[in-house]
């Protein structure tokens, strides 16, 4: 019985069951490089993304892919992004705005 009353106490306390709200930001960018998003430009994306605490994802809308982790070079390469493809970048975390702003200039 004591276990049950303990868990109902937790349920009544939202701070312990809901994650804190994080600022989030997203944008759609177009790949401008004639060679698409390749290893070297991908390296620069990962390098910039890694400076931010925010969780950052990218999906290739032109290929209808799932979102991948922008801080992973191999996942980024999985997007197979060619010139003209639209990528949806999304960030959530305390520095989400700054992360998206910094990343936009790379595409």
């Amino acid at each position: 019985m004591s276990n049950i009353s303990h868990s109902s106490f937790l349920d009544e306390n939202p701070a312990q069951v809901e994650p804190p709200l994080q600022p989030s930001k997203s944008v759609v960018v177009t790949v401008s490089d004639p060679r698409g998003l390749h290893l070297r430009s991908g390296r620069d994306v990962v390098r910039i993304a890694s400076r931010f605490q925010a969780r950052i994802t990218a999906a290739n809308l032109s290929r209808n892919t799932n979102a991948v982790d922008l801080k992973s070079i191999l996942q980024l390469m999985q997007l197979q992004a060619r010139q003209g493809h639209s990528l949806h970048l999304a960030a959530s975390g305390p520095d989400a705005d700054a992360a998206i702003e910094a990343l936009c200039s790379l595409f």
Partner: peptide, 15 residues
């Protein structure tokens, strides 16, 4: 992170 490459597919269809 390098070993995670063992399970990372190359093709966009799989991501």
């Amino acid at each position: 992170v390098a070993e995670a490459a063992l399970s990372a597919p190359k093709l966009a269809n799989n991501c």
